[in-house]
């Protein structure tokens, strides 16, 4: 059964069209990835799914509801959570306050202490730093906080926008492992990455976005051995 279905959306910034007829399907419990270079429209696509940008044409469905006309807070309330590129944590607020805000909406708030425990299990370092203002965290810790804050919102589908951006290789590996663990625990993942090999390696299926169009899609294993992908993205 599909969890998220994007049907032929067009998105514009002013007069400039950024996404052309983009479609994708995410089924429950899967990890799906969208790969592409900087400027391909990956973040735009996630922002549109999250309701921050609006599609000019096309539809977006989440479970049984059409969501492309809803404001972002109603989309979050349905359990479609986006972890934005660049983390977008609240820098002068403490780690704990950031996490609490993840459970701002009523449904998530009811489970706040339970969710907090889970997040601290997943990222013990956040527990150690809970009273610290989050702007003082390292880049890796800030990414963990952003993911933790997203988990506090009780995601059914977690969309991650370049979680590896700007992190040292060891941390990248750790973040990817965490994403896999979150998936094993039952959350569906839609991962946007420039780190094409790692993303495809982890995902069941992948989409390749170029200049606002889906140019390739398929099983990750097939994409990894695809000649075009190898040449254009993996450099082999």
């Amino acid at each position: 059964m599909f969890l998220l279905k994007v049907n032929n959306i067009d998105v514009f910034y002013g007069d400039a069209q950024v996404l052309h007829q983009v479609s994708l399907t995410v089924r429950e419990k899967e990890i799906i990835t969208i790969v592409g270079v900087n400027g391909a429209g990956k973040s735009t696509l996630l922002k549109t799914i999250g309701g921050i940008l609006k599609a000019a044409n096309g539809e977006i469905w989440f479970m049984d509801d059409r969501i492309d006309l809803l404001p972002s807070h109603q989309i979050v309330d349905k359990g479609l959570i986006r972890i934005p590129e660049g983390r977008k944590i609240f820098p002068t607020m403490t780690v704990l306050e950031n996490l609490e805000l993840g459970s701002y909406l009523p449904k998530a708030k009811v489970k706040r202490s339970e969710s907090l425990e889970k997040v601290f299990d997943l990222f013990p370092v956040l527990k150690d730093r809970e009273k610290q203002s989050s702007g003082t965290l390292s880049g890796g810790e800030q990414q963990m906080l952003a993911i933790g804050r997203g988990l506090m919102s009780l995601p059914k589908l977690l969309m991650l926008d370049e979680p590896s951006l700007g992190l040292a290789p060891l941390l990248v590996k750790q973040i990817f492992n965490t994403v896999r663990e979150i998936n094993v625990q039952g959350t569906t993942i839609l991962l946007v990455e420039q780190n094409v090999f790692n993303a495809l390696d982890m995902a069941a299926e992948g989409y390749v976005l170029e200049n606002g169009r889906i140019v390739l899609e398929g099983k990750s294993q097939d994409l990894l051995t695809d000649e075009y992908i190898k040449e254009a993205y993996l450099g082999v």
Partner: peptide, 20 residues
């Protein structure tokens, strides 16, 4: 109150946690 501070610090972050 925290949501108000969040909105003043980081608008996109506020939107992603479901703040209207």
């Amino acid at each position: 109150g925290k949501a108000i501070r969040a909105a003043s610090e980081e608008k996109e972050g506020a939107l992603t946690v479901g703040i209207n």
